[in-house]
Measured scan of single mutants.
Amino acid sequence: TSIVNVSSSLNVRSSASTSSKVIGSLSGNTKVTIVGEEGAFYKIEYKGSHGYVAKEYI
C-alpha cells in the first residue's frame, strides 16, 4: 500500500500514457495498492479493476 502525494487530485488513467482516457481521480493522502508498473506509471487497484497513475505522485 502506498499513499497519493498531491495537494489537489491525481488522475487515474485507463493505460500508462498521459494521453490515455481519465477514468477517475484520487485525492491526496489516499491509500492505493500497486499491482505493477509500466514506464513512468504504476498500475493500481481501482474500483474493482485497474488504473494507472504517474509514479512521481505516489
Rank of each mutant, 00 (worst) to 15 (best):
A16H: 04
T30E: 13
I58V: 10
I3Q: 09
K43L: 10
V12Q: 00
V22Y: 05
G28Y: 13
G28Q: 13
K55A: 04
S19A: 12
S19G: 10
K21T: 12
V22C: 08
G48F: 05
S17Q: 07
S25D: 06
Y57D: 15
V6F: 06
K43N: 02
S20T: 03
S19E: 12
K21Q: 12
E37P: 02
I34G: 00
S2F: 10
N29S: 09
L26N: 00
S20I: 01
E37W: 09
K21F: 08
E45M: 10
S7A: 12
K31N: 10
I3N: 07
G36Q: 04
G51P: 00
A40W: 07
A16W: 03
S9L: 10
A16Q: 02
V4L: 08
T33F: 09
S15P: 01
S49M: 14
E56P: 04
G36A: 08
G24D: 03
S17N: 10
G51A: 08
H50V: 14
S15G: 13
Y46R: 00
N5Y: 06
G24T: 02
V12E: 01
R13N: 07
S2C: 15
N29H: 11
S9D: 10
L26Y: 03
S8Y: 09
V6M: 09
V12Y: 00
S27W: 09
L10A: 14
E38H: 07
I34Q: 01
A54E: 15
S7C: 15
G28H: 13
V4C: 14
G51R: 01
I44N: 00
G39T: 03
S14A: 15
G28I: 14
S19L: 10
S27M: 13
S15I: 06
V32S: 01
E37D: 07
A54K: 14
S19D: 13
K55D: 00
S25T: 15
V4K: 08
A40E: 15
G36F: 03
S14P: 02
Y57A: 13
N5H: 12
N11K: 14
T30G: 06
F41R: 00
K21I: 11
A54D: 10
V12L: 03
S19Q: 11
K21G: 08
G24R: 02
S9G: 12
V32N: 01
R13P: 01
L26G: 01
G28F: 13
E56G: 07
V12K: 00
K31M: 12
E45A: 08
Y42S: 03
T1L: 08
T1I: 15
S27D: 14
T33P: 03
V53M: 03
I34F: 03
L26R: 01
F41A: 01
I3G: 10
S25F: 14
S25L: 14
E38Y: 08
Y42E: 02
L26K: 01
G39W: 03
S15Y: 06
N11L: 15
K21H: 10
S19H: 12
G51V: 03
S15T: 09
K55F: 03
A40G: 12
T1G: 12
Y46P: 00
E37N: 05
I58Q: 03
S2P: 10
T30F: 09
G28L: 12
S25M: 14
T18D: 13
T30M: 11
I3A: 09
S20P: 01
T30Y: 08
S9M: 11
S17P: 00
S14Y: 09
L10Q: 06
E37V: 09
G24P: 00
I3D: 07
S8M: 12
N29K: 11
T18P: 14
S27K: 14
R13V: 08
E56K: 12
T1P: 12
G48S: 07
S25W: 14
K31E: 10
V53A: 03
H50K: 04
S49C: 08
T30Q: 12
Y57K: 09
R13K: 06
E37T: 07
I3H: 10
G28S: 13
L10Y: 09
V4H: 08
V22D: 03
A54L: 15
V4A: 10
V22T: 06
S20R: 02
T1Y: 05
E38T: 06
G48T: 06
E37F: 05
K43W: 05
H50L: 09
I34T: 02
K47E: 14
K55E: 01
A40Y: 08
T18R: 12
T30L: 07
K47S: 07
A40F: 08
Y46H: 04
A16G: 05
T18N: 14
I58M: 07
S17M: 06
Y46C: 04
T30D: 12
G48I: 03
S20V: 02
S7H: 13
K31S: 11
V53N: 00
S19K: 11
T1E: 11
K55T: 03
I58R: 03
V53F: 02
V6Y: 04
F41P: 00
N11S: 13
I44M: 01
G39Y: 04
S17H: 10
N29V: 07
R13H: 15
N29W: 14
K43S: 03
H50T: 10
K43R: 09
N11I: 15
Y52T: 00
T1V: 14
V4M: 09
A16F: 03
S8V: 14
G36T: 03
K43Q: 07
A54G: 09
E45C: 12
G39V: 02
I34P: 02
I3S: 09
T30N: 06
S19P: 05
N5T: 14
G51E: 00
Y42F: 09
S27L: 13
V35G: 01
K55N: 02
E45T: 06
I23P: 00
N11R: 12
K31H: 12
K31V: 14
K55W: 03
E45G: 04
V53P: 00
E45V: 11
I3V: 11
S49L: 11
I58W: 07
K43P: 01
S7R: 12
E37G: 04
N5C: 15
A40S: 10
A40Q: 12
Y52P: 00
Y42P: 02
A54P: 15
L10S: 06
N29E: 08
V6P: 09
S8H: 15
E56C: 14
K31T: 12
I3E: 08
E38L: 06
G28C: 14
K47A: 11
G39F: 04
I58C: 06
G24A: 05
K31C: 14
K21W: 09
R13Q: 13
E56H: 09
R13D: 01
N5A: 10
S15L: 08
S8P: 09
G39S: 04
G48V: 03
E38F: 07
S49R: 11
G39Q: 04
I58A: 04
A16K: 02
V12G: 01
A16C: 05
G39I: 02
S20H: 04
G24L: 05
G48Q: 06
S20D: 03
K31W: 14
A16D: 02
V12M: 03
T30V: 11
K21Y: 07
G36L: 04
S27G: 10
N29M: 12
K21C: 10
S25E: 11
K47F: 10
S8T: 14
E45R: 07
S14K: 12
G39P: 01
S7W: 05
V6Q: 09
T30K: 05
V6E: 07
V53H: 00
S7V: 12
I3W: 08
S27A: 14
I58N: 03
I23D: 01
G51M: 02
T33N: 10
V32R: 01
L26M: 06
R13S: 05
K47Y: 09
I44H: 00
Y52F: 10
S7P: 11
S8K: 13
Y52K: 00
I3C: 14
S14I: 13
V4N: 08
R13M: 15
Y52A: 00
V4Y: 04
S17D: 12
V12C: 05
G28W: 13
E56Y: 08
Y52M: 01
L26H: 02
S20L: 02
K55M: 07
Y46K: 00
I3Y: 09
Y52H: 01
S49H: 09
K43D: 02
A16S: 06
S2I: 15
Y57S: 13
S9N: 11
S8E: 10
N5I: 15
S7Q: 12
E37I: 08
S7Y: 05
N29Y: 14
G51I: 02
E37M: 10
